[in-house]
Structure formats: structure tokens, C-alpha cells
Amino acid sequence: MHQKEIKTDMPFLSIKDLKVEYKSDGQIVHAVNDVSLQLERGKTLGLVGETGAGKTTIAKSILRILPDIGSHIANGEIYLEGENLLKLSENDMRKIRGNKVSMIFQDPMTALNPVLRVGDQIAEVVSLHSDNNNRAEHEKRAKEMLEIVGIPAERYYAYPHQFSGGMKQRVVIAIALACNPDLLLADEPTTALDVTIQAQVLDLIAELRNKYNTAMLLITHDMGVVAQVCDTVAVIYAGSIIEYGTKQQIFKHPSHPYTIGLFGAIPDMNEDEEWLHPIDGLPPDPTNLPQGCSFSPRCKFATDACRKEAIGMYKTQDGHDCRCCCIEAVMKGED
């Protein structure tokens, strides 16, 4: 057994310089590049970005459930309560998964086993993470969880196909929360749901988070969901965090040209506009990232300096970082 090193002066969750690579067809896909972030108990961090930006990969790295073949964490440290998860043995890791950290997956339709009763699926998770073998107690806990997510306990004996999409997603949440995790990784938990159901589920998640002081990493591409649920926001582009700050800072003073473009591309609910303002071009090929700033080929402020070398994080305000070397020009251009 190796010595467990526990650092005490650390935030609840702290990721440092995480770098994840996939191998595909002999090429290296740079999925996550030098991502660092912190999260405190009871807070919610939103990871925002487009398809393929590497959001889900970050969450999967925390749980260490990346596919074995072809992917590996090339660099970085992930500390949960001061303990480096990447150095734990698989056995120790299994105790963390579901117990301390659990994940809600995007698609509620496929996350449940269709031939098992929903209640039993919750009870199973409870029993896997409890010391005793008292079946009745696990069942009681499962019924409690159903009630918490707003499903009557008598639906314990129902099968997944008898539930609507929103109810299935609530069952998935019940499973994720059954062991009172300290950290919840929610990967697009409401994307597959209708807006009226989404509102219910988001409310539920927020309520449970406040009740149990759970830390949450919310992955989404929907700025509206972020505005509603998150405390801090990290905007991801091509595997790197390009802007990081509190919700107020990001929504009131977006500083990176990509973040600004992202807000500009959403049709406004309150104002009429003839044309939308799309970001020109496409996200870069992750096997072949451009030199320097990865957004530079689509950026109207880009200079030669942007295309030369990797761009560091610049502080625009306390706690508001932005990976852009032309912030001043961007700010002027915006006015």
C-alpha cells in the first residue's frame, strides 16, 4: 500500500493542469488541455462549451471512468478533500464512486435498466455502498429517495418504461443522490427534457444541493441553465478553459471574444433583431489545434502574437480570469 498523502489547506475539489489525450487512428486527440479549477462545498460550477469541447471528458476524468482503450490522463492532479484521486488504487477509487462522487448522465432513457423495477435500482446502489445487508432498510432508503425527487413511494415497483422522460431523469437523480455524495457531476442533466420538465428538475437539483450542501459540477451548453443554477462558470473551448469567473462576472462582463460571441449568437428573448451574430468558422480539429490561441482562426481581434505561442490566463478582475492576450482591444471593440 502506498502512503496516502492528504493536503489539508485545499479547496474541496481542485483540478490542476489536467491534460487528457485520446488516440484515434494513429492521431492524438487533445481532448483536455491544462484545465485547472476549484470548487467549494455547496457551490455549483458550470462548465459551458460546445459539442466536443471536452466538458464530459473532464467529469469522467474525476471519476476515472474514461474508456481504457485509447485514452489516458497525460498530466495533472485532481484533489478531492486534499486527496489526489489520480493516485488512488482502483479499489479505493471504487469506494469514492457513487459514495463521495456521483454522476448524472445526459440520457435518462438509456441510464436505467429496463428489466428491473426502478425502486430496486435505487436500492441496489444503496446496498452497494452500505455496510450492512439489511434488505428492508435499503428498500426504505430507496423509497425515501423517490419521495425526495417527487415520485410517490408506491411507484417503487414500477418499471422504467412506465415512466415519462422527466420521471426517469428524476429516478437517475435519485440514484445519484442515494448515497448523499459530496460531489455531484451533472452532465447535461436536462438537455433531453422538455422545458417545463427541465424547470422541475433544475429546481429539484438546486433544492437538494442546498439541503445537503453538495458541491456540483454542472456541464451544459445552455447559458440559460447556467444563469439559473451556477455560482461560478468556466467556459471551455477546444479543451481549455478560456474564461473563468463568477456568474456575475461572466454574464455582465464577458471578456473573451468567444464568450462574447456565444452570448451574441443566442436569439434575444426581449429584443427584435433582424439578423443573428454567429461566430464565423468552426471549432478546431482537436487532433490538430492551431498554434497559439485555439480561437484565433475565428477571432476578429486576433493578432500575430495570438498565433504564436500558448496564451496564459489574464486576470481582469479578482477571480475573473480570461485566456486572451488582447483583452484591452476586445474591450474597446465591444463598446
Binding site: 417545463t196 427541465q198 424547470a199 422541475q200 447559458m223 444563469a227 439559473q228 456575475q248 454574464f251
Partner: peptide
């Protein structure tokens, strides 16, 4: 009205008053 109120607004100063729907479809 429920549909409109359920849309998460990107305006963080004006969180919408949501009418949460209960009951099954």
C-alpha cells in the same frame, strides 16, 4: 404561460417567476 416561464433566462438580474407544473402528462 407555463412554457414561457420555464425558459431559463440568460438575464441574471431578472430571474423569471416560474410556474412549476405538477401532475402527469
Amino acid at each position: 404561460r407555463a412554457l414561457l416561464s420555464a425558459i431559463p433566462s440568460t438575464d441574471i438580474d431578472k430571474p423569471n417567476k416560474r410556474e412549476i407544473l405538477r401532475g402527469e402528462i
